[in-house]
């Protein structure tokens, strides 16, 4: 058995990390497509506030963070849906006010600097059973939600107005999406830390979007890239003695770079092939050859 599996904390880290690696990108796909990446960022600061309050009040910090992100997510979504504030302005209000509260709470109390550091930059190596249970429950909820509301989520992601006219209850979908984003952020926070939570939610998805041709493939690739990031990051951090959160996030970035390169090469190949078929079908019918040539150009937007 390799050295890495001989430590209890590494096994727990791998289990917790893997669950988050499924949870964050599965949900992140819809967040990225709705261009709500900033929500994840905002809610991670709200989570930090929850953690700070949890420390001071001696309540399980992750639990307080979960409550705080859930309430904030609902609040942000209500403000946005009613058009009181533009989406990003509502986010800024929540981001800075929760950060301010966190700073005040932290400055008023002494003695948890080391723990706080862990929450900021990730504590995957000190994950305990309670954390694993919480992440596990969230994982089940999110997976069931994404699977059951797959049609509603994809419709809203494509276009909220079109979704409305198709009969989707867009506002309810958005609200659920926002609340579960809070849960996802809180769970992911344990692995990569508050400051890098957004990375695990967004970057594997960006890599998947570069390569996927249909929606189910994008979902599966996002999760696959998430798992790969966590595994490679944890193994590298173990053997090279690096911060686990940082190693995981750098792995997501490396995967994104590889996906971009692969996607670019594929586009170039497709363009060349597209032109070739465009010429060869020219004899078979006017309408078709026109569209084939068009598609050849369309395949490479760059």
């Amino acid at each position: 058995m390799p050295e890495i599996f001989q430590f209890d904390f590494m096994i727990r880290a791998l289990i917790g990390g893997s669950m988050v690696a499924i949870l964050a990108p599965a949900f992140g796909l819809f967040i990225v497509l709705r261009r709500l990446s900033l929500i994840a960022d905002t809610l991670s600061h709200v989570a930090l506030m929850g953690v700070a309050i949890g420390f001071v009040t001696s309540i399980y910090p992750t639990f307080v963070a979960l409550i705080a992100t859930t309430l904030s997510a609902a609040g942000i979504e209500q403000l946005r849906a009613r058009g009181r504030l533009p989406g990003d302005a509502a986010l800024a209000v929540f981001l800075y006010s929760s950060l301010a509260i966190a700073v005040i709470v932290i400055s008023k109390s002494t003695g948890f600097n080391a723990d706080l550091f862990g929450y900021l930059f990730g504590t995957v190596l000190s994950i305990n059973d309670r954390d694993l249970w919480l992440i596990g429950i969230l994982l089940v909820i999110v997976v069931v939600f994404v699977a059951a509301f797959y049609a509603e989520l994809t419709q809203s992601a494509f276009d909220p107005d079109l979704a409305h006219v198709a009969g989707v209850r867009v506002n309810a979908t958005n609200l659920a999406l926002a609340i579960l984003t809070g849960a996802t952020v809180t769970a992911s926070m344990r692995v990569v830390g508050v400051l890098m939570v957004g990375a695990l939610i967004v970057i594997p998805v960006l890599a998947a979007l570069r390569l996927a041709r249909d929606f189910r493939a994008a979902l599966i690739l996002s999760i696959g890239f998430g798992l790969l990031s966590v595994w490679v990051g944890l193994i590298v951090s173990f053997y090279a003695d690096l911060a686990a959160g940082g190693a995981i996030v750098m792995t997501t970035v490396a995967i994104l770079a590889l996906a971009e390169i692969t996607g670019h090469l594929r586009d170039r190949l497709a363009t060349r092939r597209g032109f070739a078929t465009g010429v060869s079908t020219k004899t078979s019918g006017d309408k078709d050859s026109v569209s084939t040539v068009e598609t050849g150009q369309g395949a490479s937007p760059e």
Partner: peptide, 25 residues
């Protein structure tokens, strides 16, 4: 369409299928 322009991962068929939505499934 809001979602287009960011590598929206759907085939033409998947988009057309959206038109058949008839409530929670």
């Amino acid at each position: 369409v809001e979602g287009l322009g960011i590598h929206f991962p759907a085939t033409v068929e998947e988009i057309v299928e959206q038109g058949l939505y008839s409530g929670f499934d």
